[in-house]
Nucleic acid binder design. Structure first.
Length: 442
DNA sequence: GTTAGGG
DNA sequence: CCCTAAC
């Protein structure tokens, strides 16, 4: 139907005073009342009850929550609306235009659907001075849309629209859908599937429709038409992702400038073919990280976690700590200034994510735990007092033993241990203990 | 730059 | 794990 037909129809109806239910609305209002429109719509519900039933049965909720339904209705309304006739032209011009029924239906429904989603924005209908909140739209916008569609499209076709667009089964409907989409697709947009095209199309149309689509997308989340153009991950993200595999999937701040130096140092140590320490250290790394990936070696079996330090590392530590050799003095002096750094270098070289400070903290925590155990003596009591899983008693005992042997600075008054043995703390390597606790292994 | 220690 | 003071 075109505008002329509608106009003539309207006049004929008016002259003959035939219209009954459909014109409960006062047609001669200067302001087009939306509630009137809704009265009209309500009275016409019967006309398209079949369509409504169809849509409702198809799961289109009352509040247009169904994304596909929303877009479908909008699509249909847009499709029905003659493009050459602007809504403003149809609805304004001092009152209701000759084709009120049709135009209110289409135009207002079109806008009403938008209002339903752009709740904060008053409806401006062309030159009309009406600016009403249209409260009823929020509740019954769906009716309007569907009625308009029903009135505008043959019933069967209307059903096909709903059915096809909701389920995507009707090829005819899909064709129409595609045609509609193509008619609005930005030429630059050559990607995306149908829903995406439609979304892009909607954004090309008007602010109303943009809001409609975006709002519907926000409301409905992931499903339906909310396929947004997938964003390529940034290079930084990719780098970080790849690093995560190396850093045991642990988000962690890049540990300061020192750690950068350590990283290079670590790499240098790695290049020295310290395979065995690596293995042992890897086992320790398995213990500390959560879901740690071990990139260089195969996972050590559980037995492997309790092996003592490999000979290479042991020799290094011995030479480092015992004072044998000419360089022992220098090393010892260095150890005095950078104990944890050296421990890290020697024994946790492959634990890229762990800084010397971390090692220090870990050891401190172990000492704390061991002291706590010493105080309570009863493991059950410890379990009760601690929110976390307690370390196995054997482990804590071992920590105490080591702590007495290699006292932590300022925490142990035990001065019988010479400072030259500090670096031997690395005799403890942390391994995964029972129940996933981190366990120092000697 | 490194450690100790508090938070 | 982060921060800061101290060295």
């Amino acid at each position: 139907m075109n505008q002329v037909e509608e106009e003539s129809l309207y006049h004929s109806l008016e002259e003959e005073a035939i219209d009954v239910d459909c014109l409960l609305v006062e047609p001669r209002s200067d302001q087009v009342s939306v509630s009137s429109v809704w009265c009209f719509e309500e009275d016409n519900i019967g006309k398209c009850i079949k369509t409504e039933d169809a849509s409702y049965n198809l799961g289109v909720p009352d509040s247009n929550i169904n994304v596909e339904g929303v877009d479908t209705t909008k699509l249909n309304a847009l499709d029905v609306l003659p493009h050459e006739v602007g809504v403003e032209n149809l609805l304004t011009s001092n009152g209701i235009s000759p084709c009120d029924d049709y135009l209110i239906d289409i135009g207002y429904v079109d806008h009403g659907a938008c209002i339903d989603y752009v709740s904060n924005e008053p409806l401006h209908v062309g030159n009309s001075s009406s600016e009403s909140p249209f409260p009823m739209f929020r509740n019954k916008g769906n009716f309007g849309i569907q009625n308009s569609l029903t009135d505008s499209i043959p019933e069967s076709e209307c059903q096909n629209y709903f059915l096809g667009n909701i389920f995507g089964t009707d090829s005819k409907t899909v064709d129409k859908f595609e045609d509609f989409s193509k008619s609005f697709i930005d030429e630059e947009d050559d990607e995306g599937n149908l829903p995406l095209q439609f979304a892009q199309t909607g954004m090309e149309l008007t602010p109303f429709r943009q809001d409609l689509i975006t709002n519907s997308a926000q409301e409905h989340g992931v499903g339906g038409i909310t396929h947004k153009r997938s964003r390529k991950p940034t290079k930084r993200y990719i780098d970080e992702s790849s690093n995560l595999t190396l850093k045991n999937c642990k988000k962690r701040k890049e540990p300061s400038s020192m750690s950068k130096v350590k990283m290079s140092t670590v790499r240098r140590v790695k290049s020295q073919n310290e395979v065995k320490p690596k293995e042992n250290i890897q086992s320790s790394e398995i213990s500390f990280g959560k879901a740690i990936q071990v990139p260089f070696i195969s996972q050590c079996p559980t037995e492997c976690q309790k092996i003592s330090l490999p000979t290479t590392t042991e020799n290094q530590i011995e030479s480092f700590s015992s004072g044998s050799g000419d360089d022992s003095e220098t090393q010892m002096m260095r150890s005095m200034t950078g104990k944890w750094t050296h421990i890290k270098k020697l024994l946790f070289s492959t634990s890229v994510h762990r800084t010397p400070v971390d090692l220090k903290d870990k050891w401190r925590n172990l000492l704390k735990a061991s002291r706590a155990l010493k105080g309570s003596r009863i493991e059950d009591e410890q379990k009760r007092s601690q929110p976390w899983r307690p370390l196995p008693k054997s482990i804590l005992c071992r920590v105490r033993e080591l702590a007495s042997t290699y006292p932590y600075p300022r925490e142990a008054n035990n001065s019988k241990i010479s400072k030259s043995k500090f670096p031997i703390v690395p005799h403890v390597s942390f391994s995964e203990g029972i129940k996933g606790n981190k366990v120092p292994v000697v």
